[in-house]
């Protein structure tokens, strides 16, 4: 479904990714593991369209993404939950969600049904539907960011550090949400410092070191790899 081949990318004169290749299949959860500055966010930026590709190929269902703007990628079925959530703070929770489906220009009934789906997944958002997004707690805001991305009925969701700044109980709920998305057939590409938990829900993991993929393996194998555990997962092998 998503394929990056030998991708080189960066910001201004700085090259961050040096020939990265990765794939995400339909309904698959793939985790990017790596320390700060390894290139996880840049990789998501390449897929989401915020980072220009200098060389290599990026395809989504066979469509060349390199010349597509982020809003066009959303219309193709790529949902994004950017780092920092990037909510529309002056608008209500409901308006944030409705705008998540902007690319589809749905009829009122369809939009309502989609909204009900998201409310079923995140009941707290229905309770706070009329509240301004700026008033939400960290956990609620994260649920809104994921819910907003789901409003576009994406086939792939990009999540950048979804557990950042969340209480441990809420972190568990976010990763549980990823499982539920997978049950609905949505593929997920997630960059996460909390790699142990991210690998626990993923099928596949990629280890990034200074802009290069140094290892690709089944997520379960990475969780059992003592070298990976000591370097990136900060603990003892599961």
């Amino acid at each position: 479904m998503l394929e990056l081949r030998d991708v080189t990318a960066g910001y201004g004169p700085t090259e961050v990714l040096h020939g990265i290749s990765l794939t995400v299949g339909p309904g698959e959860i793939v985790t990017l593991v790596g320390s700060n500055g390894a290139g996880k966010t840049t990789t998501l930026g390449v897929v989401g369209g915020r980072v220009q590709v200098r060389a290599g190929d990026v395809r989504f269902d066979g469509v060349d993404l390199r010349r597509k703007r982020p809003d066009q990628r959303a219309a193709l079925g790529i949902g994004q939950v950017p780092e920092g959530r990037r909510l529309f703070n002056s608008l209500s929770v409901r308006d944030n969600l409705v705008l998540g489906g902007f690319a589809h220009r749905r009829r009122r009934a369809e939009a309502k049904a989609k909204l009900a789906e998201v409310f079923e997944l995140f009941p707290i958002l229905e309770e706070r539907a009329g509240a301004e997004a700026r008033t939400l707690s960290g956990g609620e805001a994260q649920q809104l960011a994921i819910g907003r991305a789901l409003m576009a009925s994406p086939r792939l969701i990009l999540l950048d550090e979804p557990s950042l700044g969340l209480a441990p109980r809420m972190v568990g709920r976010v990763f549980d949400t990823l499982r539920r998305l997978q049950e609905r057939g949505v593929a997920v590409l997630v960059a996460e410092q909390n790699a142990m938990q991210a690998l626990a829900v993923a099928q596949e993991g990629y280890v990034l070191v200074r802009g290069r993929v140094t290892m690709r393996d089944a997520a379960a194998n990475l969780r059992d790899n003592p070298e990976i555990v000591s370097t990136y997962l900060g603990g003892v092998a599961a």
Binding site: R86, F88, N89, L99, A149
Partner: peptide, 22 residues
């Protein structure tokens, strides 16, 4: 929706574009 999309661009252009708003 168009008016709110304009407010969204003002609130957070990156978030707006990620949501399919140009």
């Amino acid at each position: 929706v168009f008016g709110k999309a304009m407010v969204a661009c003002s609130d957070d252009p990156v978030g707006a574009q990620a949501s399919g708003i140009s």
